[in-house]
Structures are given as C-alpha cells and as structure tokens.
C-alpha cells in the first residue's frame, strides 16, 4: 500500500465532498491566521517603518533582536503565551486559554517580528528613493511612515504573506495554547498532528495536501491581484 498516492486520492475526495467538519476546521485555520496577520501587520508594518526611518541609540540592537525573532520556535512562544494566559498567569482572567483568541495571540507574537523585519527592509529601500523629495515637501521621517507604507503597499504584501504563511503552517504554538479541542480549537495543522499520532498517516497527509492547496490558492490570488494593480500603477 502506498501511503502517498492514497493520501492524494483522499485529499481530492475531501476537496470534492467538502465535508462540514473539514470546512469548519479550514474555516477556523483561516480565521485564526488571518486575524493574527491583520493584527500582526497593524503592529509590525509601522514598527518596521519606524526602525527603517529613525536613528536612536540601541537601534542596531533592536534590529538584530527583531531579525532573530523571525525564527522564534513556535513551541516556546506557545509555552510563554500558555503561561501568560493560564488562570494562574498575568492574563488568566481573560479566559483565553484553550480558545481561538489565545491562538491568535500566540500567532501574533510569532508573525509580528516577521512582518516588521521584512517591512523594515522594504521601507528602508523606498526611503532611499523618496527621502530627498519627502523632506523637500516638508515631511519629517516620523510623518513619512504612513506615506511610505502606503506607497510601498505592493512590496509590503510580501512581508504580510510571509507572516500569513508562517501562521497558517504553524502547529507548535497553537496546539499548546489552543489545546486542539475537537470542534472548537482544532485547525488544519493540529488535526494533521492528531491524525499522525493516531497513525492515520494517509488522512494526515491528505489534510496536509488540502492545507497546501489552500495556501497556494490564497497566495496565487493575492499575487495576481497585486501584480495587476502594480501594473496599473506603474509601480
């Protein structure tokens, strides 16, 4: 018996049937990761721009730390967020442990550094082009942040999608914080983890293929939309 070919068949079958249970799991995966990406971008994009445009003592150290945080181990983040959200922890009263809200929080911690570090580079490159003109028009670097984020929007989607990719593929943090509760906090990745531990490798693999298909579709759609807009804009 070939597990991989079996998995392919099974994944096709899943995508054809769209079983409500599977849809719910996909829905939660997308909801958690998209929310985390939105929040992570709201924090990370201005943070990256700020680091690109300002000079202050300790800035180089900040950048090193930020770049290192792109590789934060999800399990460690999961554990830290678990302890923070635990009833005995500082934010225990929120009651977010073993809920999607807690999972979003863990993923925000994971992806904000990615969005910030990548957008810092993008904004720094754009600033080289724009600096004289913007200063001539009377902008200070701080006031230029919004302008550069808006004008760099096509390039910055790369940073946002890198964050999304990390979030949607990640299992270590959300399985600890979410608890992989059936019908409530089970996502694509935690379901894959569960099916692997149940030894149902074909089902796990099939879920993996479905996850990959979703990730590819979303990225392809966003890239196509971005490229079309970019061409129109001549950017």
């Amino acid at each position: 018996m070939n597990t991989i070919s079996e998995a392919f068949l099974l994944s096709l079958q899943m995508m054809a049937q769209l079983d409500p249970e599977l849809l719910r799991i996909i829905g939660l995966s997308l909801r958690v990761s998209l929310t985390a990406v939105i929040i992570g971008s709201i924090i990370g994009l201005p943070l990256g721009a700020l680091l690109a445009l300002t000079r202050f003592p300790g800035r180089d150290a900040c950048i090193v730390v930020l770049n290192a945080c792109m590789g934060l181990p999800p399990v460690v983040v999961g554990l830290v967020v678990y302890l923070i959200l635990s009833r005995s922890g500082p934010l225990g009263t929120l009651g977010w442990l073993f809920t999607p809200a807690g999972m979003v929080m863990a993923q925000v911690v994971l992806i904000t550094p990615i969005v910030a570090a990548l957008s810092r580079q993008t904004v720094a490159d754009l600033w080289v082009e724009y600096e004289e003109q913007l200063r001539s028009l009377g902008l200070t670097p701080m006031k230029a942040i919004a302008t550069l984020l808006w004008d760099g929007r096509y390039s910055l989607t790369t940073a946002v999608f890198a964050g999304f990719g990390r979030a949607i593929a990640e299992v270590g943090a959300i399985i600890i914080v979410g608890g992989n509760i059936n019908g409530f906090t089970r996502t694509m990745t935690t379901a894959i983890s569960l099916e692997t531990s149940r030894g149902d490798l074909a089902l796990a693999m099939a879920l993996g293929i479905v996850l990959l298909a979703i990730a590819i579709s979303i990225n392809a759609a966003a890239t196509a939309a971005g490229n079309a807009a970019r061409r129109r804009q001549g950017a």
Partner: peptide, 26 residues
C-alpha cells in the same frame, strides 16, 4: 520653498493625488 529634482520622484498614486499630497501636509 520647494525643489524639483532631475529625476522626478513621484508617489505611487494618481497625478492628482501627487499634487494634493503636499497641500494636505500644509
């Protein structure tokens, strides 16, 4: 005071928005 450069630096926006941009700043 204002300055125009040899290679114009235009924002990635419409023609109108490019002119409006510094006016908004003022």
């Amino acid at each position: 005071q204002a300055m125009v450069f040899q290679k114009p630096v235009l924002l990635r926006r419409s023609v109108l928005e490019n002119v409006e941009f510094p006016l908004k700043l003022r």
